[in-house]
């Protein structure tokens, strides 16, 4: 494992810590898209089915369990916690997220790594992760008041994806010289979706202004 991959994973982990910190300390999930969080539960469960069939390392196994566990916990807080659920920005979180699932599944059937159940689900999870942030980005556009923790959460998620691209470039030249179309193209799409957000996040940070995304 190289430093970029580790930095990416740690940034991903940190984004989840920031989100859970916001939820647990402020007892609020305002500005957080339940739709995106539900998609992440599906992404992690379908990708990490290989927990039962493939062992890579203790690190990988532990991280997979953490990602599944925390994503379920976040959805639990947003749907079922009696205080937190009342702060959910329901009226603004209107992206029809379930519509993303069939195209990703069809794409996984057409372009899997191998035509087996676990490989099709793995490809599906890669494609779904690429677009899972869309409901969250839409919600941020509609939010007149984006708090610091919510902005940090989305920034860290985007940074994690950007670091994975650096990791792939590094691996390509130092390890295998193998082109990995499925994760690379999906990862590039996923990172590109953050471009607009990054622009306004960095601008607000430089000018010491409150983050606002133009609709």
């Amino acid at each position: 494992m190289n430093i970029f991959r580790l930095a990416g994973d740690m940034t991903h982990l940190l984004s989840i810590v920031v989100l859970l910190l916001k939820i647990r300390t402020t007892k609020s999930c305002a500005g957080i898209s339940l739709k995106t969080q539900e998609l992440y539960v599906i992404v992690f469960i379908t990708r990490y089915l290989d927990l039962f069939t493939r062992y890579v390392s203790f690190y990988n196994t532990a991280m997979k369990l953490v990602f599944i566990g925390t994503s379920v916990a976040i959805v639990w807080y947003m749907r079922l916690h009696k205080v937190v659920k009342q702060t959910y920005s329901r009226d603004e979180d209107t992206f029809k997220h379930y519509l993303l699932i069939p195209p990703c599944f069809i794409l996984a059937l057409l372009i899997p790594l191998e035509f087996t159940v676990t490989e099709i689900l793995w490809s599906f999870s890669i494609y779904l992760e690429a677009v899972a942030i869309l409901p969250q980005l839409l919600l941020l556009q509609r939010s007149s008041n984006i708090d610091n923790l919510t902005g940090s959460y989305v920034f860290l998620l985007g940074a994690y994806r950007a670091l994975y691209i650096v990791n792939w470039v590094y691996r390509f030249f130092t390890e295998t010289h193998k082109i990995r179309w499925i994760p690379w193209i999906s990862g590039l799409v996923q990172t590109a979706l953050y471009a607009d957000f990054f622009y306004y996040y960095i601008k607000s940070w430089k000018n010491h202004e409150k983050l606002r995304l133009p609709a």
């Binding site: 991903h12 290989d50 994975y164 990995r180 499925i182 994760p183």
Partner: peptide, 10 residues
């Protein structure tokens, strides 16, 4: 092989 590199990331 294919499996090893594709699936060693998270």
């Amino acid at each position: 092989g294919v499996q090893a590199i594709e699936h060693d990331e998270l």
